[in-house]
């Protein structure tokens, strides 16, 4: 059955329309969870507000469990779901640069759009920065082209790399996440801050 668009159960234009609807859901949930506030987002790195960690991991786990169960019931063919390819060096270096951008800018791309939509000027400036950053990458592409394609590992699943089944890895991730949530709740009590 699923994924609907890949199996051509819905047309390309319906798919784009549903992308818009999914985007509304995405933006709504982000804003409702407080991801439109950069100080709330940055809180995760100082322990006063762990909302990023909680929402992020709960979201990833929910979707992961959902996909595994959907696959189990035969509702979705996991072979047709996009799995991000892994290019080791660019994934690490890109992540490091993004991390630096995160702590300086206080947003990530998705949340900056969310912040900008409710009038956060810093979010809008961050978006301008994003455009410049992408343009710089495009303009200087030959310089980092080699790095971009280095260490191609294909599209491996982390469970396979660790030699576990998807289900066992999912269970481990759930337990790790719950442990982190416990630490997060503790940290919020230890470094309290008033609402801002």
């Amino acid at each position: 059955m699923g994924p609907l668009a890949v199996n051509e159960i819905i047309s390309e234009n319906t798919n784009l329309f549903l992308a818009f609807i999914i985007g509304i859901g995405f933006g709504f949930v982000l804003e409702q969870s407080g991801f439109s506030s950069s100080r709330k987002l940055a809180g995760v790195f100082y322990g006063y507000d762990m909302v990023v960690l909680k929402v992020f991991f709960t979201g990833a786990i929910t979707a992961m469990l959902g996909l595994l169960f959907f696959s189990l019931f035969g509702w979705v063919d996991l072979g047709l779901v996009y799995i991000n390819p892994t290019y080791l060096s660019s994934a690490i270096l890109g992540g490091v640069v993004m991390g630096a951008g995160f702590i300086m800018g206080g947003y990530c791309p998705g949340t900056s759009f969310c912040g900008a939509s409710i009038g956060k000027v810093d979010g809008m400036v961050f978006i301008v920065g994003l455009f410049i950053g992408v343009a710089i990458f495009g303009g200087g592409y030959p310089i980092w082209e080699k790095l971009y394609w280095a260490q191609d590992l294909g599209s491996p699943k982390i469970s396979k790399s660790l030699g576990l089944s998807d289900g066992v890895f999912a269970l481990l991730l759930i337990l790790v996440a719950l442990a982190m949530f416990w630490v997060a709740d503790w940290a919020e009590k230890k470094f309290p801050r008033e609402e801002y």
């Binding site: 595994l68 696959s71 189990l72 089944s165 719950l178």
Partner: peptide, 17 residues
């Protein structure tokens, strides 16, 4: 989520096409 995780860890993966 813990019971769901336990279930998914216990059942065999669906590999049928």
């Amino acid at each position: 989520i813990i019971p769901l995780g336990l279930i998914i860890a216990a059942v065999p993966q669906n590999k049928t096409k």
